[in-house]
């Protein structure tokens, strides 16, 4: 059966993506961790800390973007672990000695993470709505939310793949989650950055999570966005290109060593 290289790349990516989604269904504890934990966090912030935080509006409306970003952090740490396992456990070696298209091996992990994270995001939205989240987004806003979230998810997934390739073991790879999950806390995700000490404010206002969260928040509840959307696209577009390139180089370097 002669078919084009593109056909097989898509075919193989599809198979690897389905595998990745099966993994999620087989280990419900990871799904629970990646969605359950951010939801718990949301409840904690809304009902325990929320009363003390002034954001000028309903606090639940304020924190939903931050919860989503945190949720993605958990999800992608699973990806980093899974890539490290495949790389060090011999599965990638076997697949690379087969006709399977090499691009599909990492591509499947990224696409799988993307689908899983979208699902997680949807669950967070539903839980938020259940406890009083009322977005004012129009259809066009929702499309924008989908687009910017997709860019973010793909960028983080590729970054997770890079971590997985670099890490010598799944345990090291899981440390990735710490880094990704920590960033939203030092951004405008849960509290306005103006309330932080000036040195921290400078970091919080200029790290990639803040423009992303401001853009999402603006689209969801109509707060001003300004040029934050541009910054978000620059940050995560750049991260996507860089991570995908580095991942590809790292993966192909295996042929030399």
């Amino acid at each position: 059966m002669r078919r084009s290289a593109l056909y097989w790349t898509l075919h193989d990516s599809g198979m690897m993506t389905i595998r990745s989604i099966r993994h999620m269904l087989r280990s419900p504890e990871s799904l629970l961790l990646s969605v359950g934990l951010p939801v718990m966090l949301m409840l904690l912030f809304v009902y325990v800390f929320g009363g003390a935080i002034q954001t000028g509006g309903e606090y639940i409306n304020y924190i939903v973007p931050g919860v989503i970003v945190t949720c993605v952090g958990y999800g992608s740490s699973m990806t980093a672990m899974s890539v490290a396992l495949d790389m060090n456990g011999g599965l990638f070696d076997r697949l690379r000695s087969m006709p399977a298209r090499p691009a599909a091996l990492l591509g499947g992990h990224v696409l799988g993470t993307y689908v899983k994270s979208l699902l997680g995001t949807l669950l967070v939205f539903l839980c938020a709505i259940a406890i009083g989240f009322r977005p004012s987004a129009t259809l066009l806003d929702w499309l924008g939310i989908f687009a910017i979230l997709s860019l973010f998810l793909l960028a983080i997934s590729w970054l997770a793949v890079v971590f997985g390739l670099v890490a010598g073991s799944a345990e090291t790879a899981s440390a990735f989650s710490f880094f990704i999950m920590f960033l939203p806390y030092v951004s405008s995700a849960f509290v306005p950055t103006e309330t932080m000490p000036s040195w921290l404010h400078a970091f919080a206002a200029h790290q990639p999570m803040t423009p992303l969260i401001e853009t999402l928040r603006g689209l969801l509840i109509g707060t001003p966005i300004g040029n934050q959307a541009v910054w978000a696209v620059v940050w995560f577009g750049g991260m996507l290109l860089l991570s995908a390139t580095v991942a590809s180089i790292l993966f192909h370097r295996r042929r030399k060593v």
């Binding site: 059966m1 097989w8 075919h11 193989d12 198979m15 690897m16 595998r19 099966r22 993994h23 087989r26 280990s27 456990g89 011999g90 599965l91 070696d93 076997r94 697949l95 000695s97 087969m98 006709p99 399977a100 599909a104």
Partner: peptide
């Protein structure tokens, strides 16, 4: 075909799913 030192099978899939996945990737 290559069989390495460590069983390169997918732990979270069933035996049959492993064979189907690998068969698909063999085109």
């Amino acid at each position: 075909s290559l069989t390495g030192q460590y069983a390169a099978v997918d732990e979270l899939l069933t035996g049959k799913e492993n064979l189907h996945l690998m068969g698909g990737l063999l085109h």
